[in-house]
Design a protein around this nucleic acid. Structure first.
Lengths: 213, 213
DNA sequence: CGTCGAACTGATCGAGCGTTCAGCAGTCTA
DNA sequence: TAGACTGCTGAACGCTCGATCAGTTCGACG
């Protein structure tokens, strides 16, 4: 993938993203994409090698953004595994809520990639999974996460965060901040977080108050 | 939808189910489906009105089965909300693990239905959601579920159960019984189940032992 | 035996698909 | 001013798509 694309291809990526999310990869024609982007069919081929490459570019760009969001969140978090898990959950929920169509494409259309692209995509996905794995393992080691099923708890956390893309609507009466607070709380519940002692620093009230501290 | 279909259409439904799950609705041709089912293209039209009707039949059949499984599970469970939630989670996990391709179609391809079919599908989905909603509400009323976020906990439970279809492999070293036990335990953790007193009757050990009773 | 409907076939339709290609206006560089 | 490059166009390619339809086989029924 090129890192420096000429201008105009952004409209193309955005149009393709919306069409793929609405109709699905196989049911979307590149003519519809080009029309939505306001360019000719041939211009599409000027920027991308074809329909499949367009899909791959969308998925890869999404991975870039998500990875960057997670890295930023983790960099701002401290060493505490609970804090780091909170950071990851917040980043994930915000990404899924803010990039809903990108997310639903990621979750379903990776099967339409070719072998090479799919390997690349899966590798990046595995890296994202490992971030959660490491944090959960850390919490277990330090004795502040008590879940007997760390793998399943991790999968459950990711599944519930990912599902946000499928139902959350920004105008639905639930602010993003509230949503994040709830999911952070649910994630800590899932790993059965028991803090060593009352934590210093600012924290969401709901999440800790309920732990009886 | 007809309840009494002529014989031979089962092979068709099965072939379509596999193709849709593997490639996606839009990327699957009815010729491929017919070939996989071992019949001619025209025979497909003898049984179903077209590609879309085939998809609808698959989704509807899946809903029938899932509904039946849940009803059976609830009928065998007692009045206790925890027991009923366990029954629903077990039924859902078993369905998702046993009907993986059907499940992934349900989760992604409902957008390819026409307006009328989609309304029908969503109505049935809402009914399934309500089963979980009722059980959780019951547990809250009785004071044995303590979660401050019942709606989100319910969505989280469903999301983690549904995700089973995307990763579970029967030959992966994890038995279905173990999987069910884990997810039941995680679900009870999510709703913050606190039993009134040691429960009578047979129960999975892991789920209750960890509650410190 | 005759007829009727269910199950199914093979040929064929027009539309739309992804992709290709020759060409052109504008801009930058030598 | 020549040449190269970027960004783009419109027309066309061969092919596959979902769908249609006249026709055939065949067992059941009267």
């Amino acid at each position: 993938m090129d890192t420096t694309r000429p201008p105009g291809h952004q409209a193309l990526l955005e149009a393709a993203r919306q069409e793929f999310a609405e109709r699905g990869y196989g049911s979307t024609s590149i003519r519809e994409i080009a029309q939505r982007a306001g360019i000719s069919l041939s211009a599409l081929y000027h920027y991308y090698g074809g329909k499949q490459e367009l899909l791959h570019a969308i998925l890869d760009e999404g991975m870039d953004r998500y990875r960057r969001d997670c890295d930023t969140a983790l960099a701002q978090a401290g060493d505490d595994p609970a804090e780091r898990l909170e950071a990851l959950v917040e980043a994930t929920v915000r990404f899924r809520a803010g990039q809903r169509d990108r997310s639903s494409i990621e979750l379903t259309e990776h099967r339409s990639l070719n072998e090479e692209q799919r390997v690349h995509f899966r590798r990046r996905q595995a890296a994202a999974t490992r971030m959660f794995q490491d944090v959960v393992a850390d919490g277990l080691e330090q004795g502040i996460f008590l879940t007997p099923y760390p793998d399943d708890a991790r999968r459950a956390i990711l599944a519930m965060c990912n599902a946000v893309a499928q139902w959350y609507r920004p105008d639905g009466g639930l602010t993003l901040a509230d949503l994040v607070e709830r999911y952070v709380s649910l994630a800590l519940t899932l790993v059965e977080y028991r803090p060593r002692r009352p934590r210093p620093g600012p924290l969401p009230e709901g999440g800790l108050g309920r732990l009886g501290l």
